[in-house]
Design a protein around this nucleic acid. Structure first.
Length: 299
RNA sequence: GCCGUGGUAGCUCAGGUAGCAGAGCGCUUCUCUGAAAAAGAAGAGGUGGCCGGCGCACAUCCGGCCCACGGCA
């Protein structure tokens, strides 16, 4: 049996609650697919499930890194596959839950991510070059080495251009020949938590207020003290805004308003990402979810 | 009532010597293979408070009115 249930949806749609309910009913274990809940100490701001919520359900890929440690899709893919296989081996049902679309895609479609890791020094060098001569200069350099890349990557997106050049330079092979999907590893059922637009917005706003009440400012203060504000992990909604408040750059009220709108924008980006995936079974309530899963398990 | 300042996109406001109406934010749609809560792209919004005048042509000049804010009475 290599079944895998995926629970996805925009932030604040209710994935956590649903996944735990499902894990209880179907003898499952939860594997988180969330790029920020990975970090220890980032609890309130990432809406990480609490011990109490989790109850007896095992949760994986939560709290595996400190905020000063980098983590990437490629690592996630390896970690997740290993854990999912282990859960299956123990005859339990793995439930991959999260809103990080790329992480889910990497696992479900077995993306063959170029083996070349991030090379900070090279990136810095290219970044400097882009700053000096313009991004297009770097882009031209890339398509000289790999003309096909011009069709694949967004010439206006610094990160895409830089990564493509990084891969091409370090592997000495055209970047465009190095992006493939592998064969699917799992028999997957994707469940999308559907929430009406206005309702989702409302939930997001309420949740931001709740985070503040629960002590987000203290959480961020503690982490910034411990690790310094300049961490990749803190480039996350809630953290970067509160850091501005802590550094006396902005009043709290303004920062809270920004959190709300930024979370909303994030939810919309997630929706755009998920929208084109026709394999997602969008469910409106728990009953529907059970029906979809029962059918999947029966086959 | 008088004096002053203002009324331009959903919001905050530029510009304004008459010659295609602007920005930021928001909004809509989209992209995505070792940073993805990241990084990017495209687009839709205007009877320039209202009425009249002068002009080939007015957001812009002139007159009147309305509204908002501040000051004086």
């Amino acid at each position: 049996m290599n079944r895998l249930i995926v629970v996805l949806g925009p932030t604040a749609s209710g994935k956590t609650e649903l996944s735990i309910k499902l894990a209880k009913k179907y003898n499952g274990e939860v594997v988180s697919a969330d790029s920020r809940q990975i970090y220890r100490g980032m609890d309130i701001g990432t809406a990480k499930p609490t011990k109490k919520e989790m109850g007896t359900i095992p949760h994986w890929i939560l709290d595996i890194k400190n905020p000063n440690e980098p983590y990437t899709v490629a690592e996630f893919k390896n970690d997740a596959i290993k854990i999912i296989r282990d859960i299956q081996k123990r005859n339990k049902l793995p439930i991959l839950v999260g809103g990080t679309g790329l992480y889910i895609k990497a696992v479900v479609e077995n993306l063959d991510i170029p083996r070349i890791g991030a090379n900070p020094l090279l990136r810095q060098k290219i970044e400097k070059e882009a700053k000096k001569n313009g991004l297009d200069f770097v882009f031209q350099k890339l398509i000289k080495l790999d003309p096909e890349a011009a069709y694949i990557i967004d010439s206006k997106n610094p990160r895409r251009v830089i990564r493509a050049l990084e891969i091409t330079l370090l592997t000495k092979k055209p970047f465009s020949q190095q992006r493939r999907s592998g064969k699917p590893l799992f028999d997957v059922l994707k469940i999308g938590v559907s929430t009406a637009k206005e309702r989702l917005k409302e939930k997001i706003y309420l949740r931001v207020d709740k985070m503040i009440k629960e002590g987000l400012v203290k959480e961020v203060e503690y982490l910034v003290n411990k690790y310094g504000a300049d961490q990749q992990a803190f480039d996350a909604i809630g953290y970067r805004e509160i850091i501005k408040y802590i550094n006396n750059k902005k009043p709290l009220g303004q920062v809270i308003a920004e959190m709300k709108i930024n979370t909303w924008h994030y939810a919309k980006r997630q929706t755009t990402w998920f929208k084109k995936d026709k394999r997602i079974n969008w469910v409106r309530n728990y009953k529907e979810t059970e029906r979809v899963i029962d059918k999947f398990i029966m086959k």
